[in-house]
Design a protein around this nucleic acid. Structure first.
Lengths: 345, 345
DNA sequence: CTGTTAGCGCGTTCAC
DNA sequence: GTGAACGCGCTAACAG
């Protein structure tokens, strides 16, 4: 614990200094200190200087909890992502943080662990902080979560997806379409016996949609595939990818290309193939999703789909700022995706 | 923006319902509602049921800003990490979150981008929220940051390091010692011409300390090395590793083992070697630091040092809870590290 | 077991 | 350009 370095003000009060303490030292009222600190009112130059000197001397730090209560503006933007460990979502969080850095907003970040029950709990605990807006990942939520959000009367943005029944506005892309685009390119490359490696799709709704896109694209090409390995894990990690590729090759040895629900298992699969002496892409081609850094650095490079994770965050934050300023906004902001063909296919 | 679903209470008030609204509906005072919601007072069973029914019907959500102001307990633990993209630090944040999940505390997370100037700004903006404690990464801070922290009168924990001059308490390990342990093992493996690949050590103080440990260990073994490549970037990424290994091999072709400041550039270096047709570890051995998931999945596996990133967070949170409860705590809590020899050396 | 009173430290509002 | 009164929504402290 800190040694006691609290301020003792002239009137003998002890503890963290308040605006009144600053005002007393500067010979003005607390109100003038408040105005000076926010800088959007006219304050006489020498008054301002005395106030700033007092602030420095006392080590005064504004108490924003009190300020929020009074102004009814918390300055918080709440954000919920499935996982903070996953660099795609970390990039989105970074995009949001960077975009709101210009404003005086602060990010309140939580991770749901891919659980909508946990999401519901987190939504409640975030709403207790009276955020001015909330940014969620995906379009699947518990009924209670939807009710709380509606009741809160604040802007809600769902990201990383295009929900059928959005709560409010949306910033994202169709995971199914993105996957279809990938399959199309691979068909064009000459592949025809497709395998799919995924995790627990009950929890990972984006994974589920990618799977849907996979099926739709194959159907379109008359290539319907039942070569699917679903690992009971969420999220599906690098090492799961190794496990999955072994199962896929064992059960469906004719597979000529395996698409993984993300680059992480794709990388694990490629490494496992190397261990098994199976050449990628000669013996089997492997593709991922998400364009993680590893996809471009790995040798061979991993064919994948870039989905602008950072941009999703940046655009969601812009959308949020616009909504908070009551500017008219689009109900749905699409974000870009593009297929990147690399050495693994 | 939400359609207006605000509650209209019996007395005609409009807007987010308050405890008084709940109390009115349940026929009790706001104070009783407050007690009921916190659950640590005796409330008559039927009173409690009426209150809960009113809460449900109104969709009431506690306003914690107001509660904090009154109770003088914000329920926030502030945490600053260099980067949220880096899975080592994400793991630490996860360790903290998981450990405080049992309490009613909430994490206020920020990332400094490896800049102590940015750290100073963030410390100020976090302190405005009156966190009950703050967890920092590393031991290097601006004088103003140190002053603000001292003035705040809250527990401060520095992590990921053992600072010479700690602010308060510390949870971490000696990066120099950990690197020395790695060098020792590699010397034992028979390597003698060591190279070091690092980033901008002015910003990455842990990288700097690892470098120091590298030098000390080599000196101890009589192997002093000037084979150092410092990429002017922070953090040093996978792709920088590729760049760096080319420079290292060009300038110091006799190098028999290259140690990278983290697994990320180590992986990039290994992949670049594969592209160049240089065999790892036969032609050159490569080691990393941090035991990222990639180090175990990659083929060859990457020799590295596990530093228990998650445990640092978990222990820091435990330490914080102990400090907040005024239990006596150790000034310094050491966390474990251990060298993992894998195929890359 | 429940209510009343009195703030917490600010910002809003109006006054001068 | 500055100040006074008041209240934001809640909880501490005390009463009963």
């Amino acid at each position: 614990m800190q040694t006691d370095q609290d301020q003792r003000t002239g009137d003998g009060s002890i503890g963290t200094p308040t605006m009144a303490d600053v005002g007393r030292m500067a010979g003005v009222s607390a109100m003038t200190v408040s105005r000076a600190l926010r800088g959007n009112s006219y304050i006489a130059k020498d008054t301002l200087e005395r106030i700033m000197a007092a602030v420095d001397q006392l080590g005064y730090v504004l108490d924003q909890s009190a300020g929020s209560l009074s102004s009814r503006r918390s300055g918080f933007i709440a954000t919920l992502v499935p996982s903070i460990d996953n660099s795609n979502f970390a990039d989105t969080a970074r995009g949001i943080t960077d975009a709101i850095a210009q404003t005086s907003m602060q990010l309140l970040l939580g991770y749901t662990n891919y659980s909508i029950a946990r999401e519901e709990e987190l939504i409640e605990s975030m709403l207790r902080r009276r955020p001015e807006g909330i940014i969620l990942t995906g379009g699947k939520h518990t009924p209670k979560a939807r009710a709380m959000l509606a009741n809160a009367g604040i802007p809600v943005i769902e990201t990383w997806d295009i929900p059928e029944n959005p709560i409010d506005t949306v910033v994202g892309f169709s995971n199914a379409d993105a996957m279809e685009a990938l399959v199309d390119k691979l068909v064009m490359q000459g592949y025809s016996r497709f395998g799919f490696i995924t995790g627990s799709e009950a929890s990972d709704t984006r994974g589920h949609q990618r799977h849907t896109g996979f099926d739709q694209a194959l159907a379109r090409h008359g290539l319907a595939s039942k070569r699917v390995i679903a690992i009971d894990a969420v999220p599906i990690s690098m090492s799961h990818g190794g496990l999955a590729i072994r199962q896929l090759l064992q059960r469906f040895p004719d597979t000529d290309v395996a698409i993984c629900v993300s680059d992480l298992p794709a990388f694990g699969a490629i490494m496992e193939c190397r261990r098994m002496g199976i050449a990628v892409p000669q013996d089997i081609a492997i593709a991922g999703f998400g364009d993680y850094e590893i996809a471009s650095v790995s040798e061979p490079g991993i064919t994948t789909v870039n989905v602008d994770s950072y941009g999703i965050g940046a655009k969601a934050a812009e959308q949020m700022i616009a909504m908070l300023e009551n500017r008219s906004v689009a109900t749905t902001v699409g974000t870009s995706f593009h297929v990147l063909l690399r050495g693994s296919t």
